[in-house]
Design a protein around this nucleic acid. Sequence first.
DNA 1: CTGAAAGCGCTTACAG
DNA 2: CTGAAAGCGCTTACAG
Lengths: 335, 335
Amino acid sequence: MKKVSMSEIAKELGISKVSVSKALGDKDGVSEELREKIKHTAQNMGYRINNSARSLKTDRQYNIGILIGEKFVMDNEAYYFSVCGEITKKLDAYGTSGIMEIISFENEKDKILPRVYNEKKVDGIIVLGQLSNEYLTVLEQMTIPMIYFDFYRQASKIDSIVADNFCLGYQLTDLLIERGHKEIAYVGSINATSSIQDRYLGYYKALIENNLKLNFDYIIDDRDECGKLLEELELPKNMPTAFVCNCDRVAFTLITKLKSLGIKIPEDVSVVGFDNSLFSTIADPKITTVDNNIEKMVSTAVKVISKKINNPQKTYDRILVPGTIIERDSVKSLN
Amino acid sequence: MKKVSMSEIAKELGISKVSVSKALGDKDGVSEELREKIKHTAQNMGYRINNSARSLKTDRQYNIGILIGEKFVMDNEAYYFSVCGEITKKLDAYGTSGIMEIISFENEKDKILPRVYNEKKVDGIIVLGQLSNEYLTVLEQMTIPMIYFDFYRQASKIDSIVADNFCLGYQLTDLLIERGHKEIAYVGSINATSSIQDRYLGYYKALIENNLKLNFDYIIDDRDECGKLLEELELPKNMPTAFVCNCDRVAFTLITKLKSLGIKIPEDVSVVGFDNSLFSTIADPKITTVDNNIEKMVSTAVKVISKKINNPQKTYDRILVPGTIIERDSVKSLN
DNA sequence: CTGAAAGCGCTTACAG
DNA sequence: CTGAAAGCGCTTACAG
């Protein structure tokens, strides 16, 4: 079985490979009639374009790198894997493939740039989830377009796509306050990621506006310095009437723990989460949460990175994607 | 900022680019002294190899395609996404990247080959999870190495890496029988995937060896013809004392349903699952299940595809990776 | 509309 | 050990 290149097709048809290239690439400069004939012949001969050869000439790889920190994928059911899948699907419409690369703890520490960059395999990079500031600073030296997904850095000029976490944290807390709750805890390590922090600040804003005092005993860590989720949450001595959790995963863990202590949800304590992930629907009761509108976030990210590849100068700053609260069964009204 | 190629490095050092290529590629034909100098200069100049140029010459892409059917990723927490992540990690040691591609329902039906193949972006392909026979038949025409992961086709010669499902289905059912269970149901659509089918056949073998009759009412579908998981399971009229579920996900759904009917697990009914996924540990009670040894399966798959790329003639047939039963709290002894 | 020529950045076989 | 030359399969600018 011999290889079929554009030259082979040209030879077969008695024309030049230039015409073949134009026809197959949907470029001007061939008659429609010839174009059709060429496409037909290519199909018959089982022609497949050689992306490497194309890339070498055009300086475009038609690949996007998708970076995920190892800390986010310790779990088998990691959230960013599915985001990566969604991105891959959307990318397809742009004739582009997604190359996922896991940034190991080691490479993050040693500031090793990703292979997809070092070997020029991609035209741009989407970073899923926050990495260490030191590593990001190094990443930002790269000479190809990059965007941050689901986080941002105040210190950097890199465009980012994030949920409107501040606003959503506010709304979710406000909902609890409206329902008569006054003792409200926040579960999340507020220095771990920008999302956790912004959700927390939204929570705090809601407290302020309702003249409720911020109680430091009510701020509960959910992960360690490396960003790994804690096995066990440490509950405050005085039980609040409600918990705002920075994600459904943690809300689920919390509910399980509270139940094991004989505390009923939502009769005794209310719990809300974030992300509208599987955890919010398999929990009993089902968790009131926030739909971040991932689909919108992903399509925005793909659109932005594509535009930046065509025009690296253009900046988009921080794009906030609005979400919506989904009320389910984990909140009791105290009124 | 100007581009740095091997020629630039050569010019800088007053040598030929051939020496640069040999030095950077760790090939013979340069003195150690010169090699070191070249590597050093390359580093300083911020040299990154151009994978496309290398590929064009060597006819190797240093990329592996990872195909996943859309049916497996309807869920956000899809199992194969994490497998894809594991593969990506392992591939790194081979200097190779993984390019995930979702096969949409449409492309599967229309028998459209994956982009990674059509554009020669990969040296080999790993298929995660069973696709339709019609589609696989078309895939098998491809002229690059391919392996199946987590399923196989009796009809085809494609090498595959699978858990020892038959044996594990047998062991798991046998465990229930040893504990005194005689009325045992199997939950899984036995024509949906080879895994479900083999686990079922192992279940049946255990029944036969223990002189228990196969009861067709006790075979419960868990997905539709497209392979999508059913929202609601249809329980048999006469309740068995135990259920063997083809995966933890379904075991979780079943437990939720049984509980909602006031049936206690494991007091009234025992349930076992497969996969040792998150679902088996977040369920209450925790589910007795099977650890498929994904890590071993993944490392085997990566090893096999790499070898096949270097030697496409070589075949490995079906490789069975042994698993282990993990006993937890969802089985009651009737003895 | 059509095609000859140049060149993208590597690697390899070969000569010195 | 070192390097000149050829060539991988495309695309683009240009000439006809």
